[in-house]
Simulated assay, not measured.
Amino acid sequence: GPIVAVVVYRFVPPPVTPLMLIRAAEGKGLDHRWRSIRTVAPALPRALIAAEDARFCEHSGFDFDALQKAYANNGRGGKIRGGSTISQQTAKNVFLWPGRSYVRKGLEAWFTVLIETIWGKKRIMEVYLNSIEYGPGVYGAEAAARRYFGVGADRLTTAQAARLAAILPSPLKWKAAKPGPYVKKRSRRIGAASGTVRREGLAACVA
């Protein structure tokens, strides 16, 4: 059952995700290479925390402050903001199919509790940065670093890490290697926020 899968993936890299299979069936290809978090440049987890989930190390899977802000923001007709934590995104990426339904939201919450309990923060971040979609057919930090910057994920600079984090909301549309003005601006903001993450130790749980 699901608990067995969570326990197995605590030790074994998840080979593929449902999204990878769907995109491969659409003809987008599949470039995915697992890399241990110990050999990924620390700039990347910092950039991902800065961009996606500043309180990743503090919350237990759900960030209720961020959710309230998202609701308020969406109610004001602002840009839709998820308030979805890295833990929730990981649960969704690895165990569930894409889509929006209450059933899937419920399952996502259940898997989030399981991975927070069984994996812990460092493993969640490791699986997250290895399974994210970074472009058509490009999954995980290693494939993305090689595809866009011609280096391994161990050699990513702060600026490159910020660039990868910046395209996450729309990886099929936005470009990490030759970004437009919006992604450039977003990357600079994330780069600055990464500095704060480093100084304030907000990524300590994955170091």
Score class of each variant (00 low, 15 high):
A70M: 12
A54F: 15
R55Q: 08
R46M: 13
S36M: 05
L107M: 14
V4M: 00
L114C: 14
V138W: 03
V6I: 11
S101C: 11
R189I: 14
R35M: 13
E142V: 09
D53T: 12
R188M: 04
I3Y: 00
A70S: 12
Y128A: 07
A41G: 06
W119C: 12
L48V: 15
P171F: 04
F11V: 13
A204C: 05
K122Y: 07
V94P: 00
G120K: 07
L107V: 02
T85Y: 09
K175S: 15
L48N: 03
K105Q: 06
L168T: 10
R33K: 15
A193C: 08
R186Y: 02
A141G: 10
R10Y: 00
K185H: 03
V206P: 01
Y9W: 12
V6G: 06
Y71Q: 14
G75L: 14
G61K: 09
P45V: 09
G29R: 14
S194E: 02
F149A: 09
E142G: 12
R23F: 00
A165P: 03
V4R: 13
L164P: 01
D63M: 10
V197F: 07
E142Y: 04
T90E: 01
A91H: 03
I80M: 10
G82M: 02
R163T: 08
F111I: 11
D154G: 14
K79C: 03
Y139H: 10
Y182P: 00
W97P: 02
T90S: 10
K122T: 11
K92S: 05
G191N: 05
V113G: 05
P14S: 05
R10E: 04
W97Y: 14
V94L: 07
P169M: 08
D53R: 10
A193R: 15
R155H: 07
L19P: 01
G82A: 06
A70E: 02
G83R: 07
R100C: 01
Q160R: 14
F95E: 01
V151R: 06
A165F: 01
D65A: 14
Y102A: 14
Y71T: 13
G201K: 09
G29W: 01
S36P: 15
R55V: 09
E108R: 12
E126F: 08
L107N: 12
R38P: 00
G191Y: 04
V94D: 00
A204F: 07
G83T: 03
K28D: 07
S194F: 03
Q88D: 00
A161S: 12
G75V: 13
L30W: 04
R33I: 13
R46G: 05
I3F: 06
R38V: 07
W97R: 13
Y139W: 10
Y9Q: 09
A141T: 04
G1P: 02
I22T: 00
R10G: 05
K79E: 10
G135T: 10
R189S: 12
R46S: 08
A177K: 15
F11K: 11
N93V: 03
K121V: 10
R46H: 06
T85E: 00
V8W: 00
K121W: 04
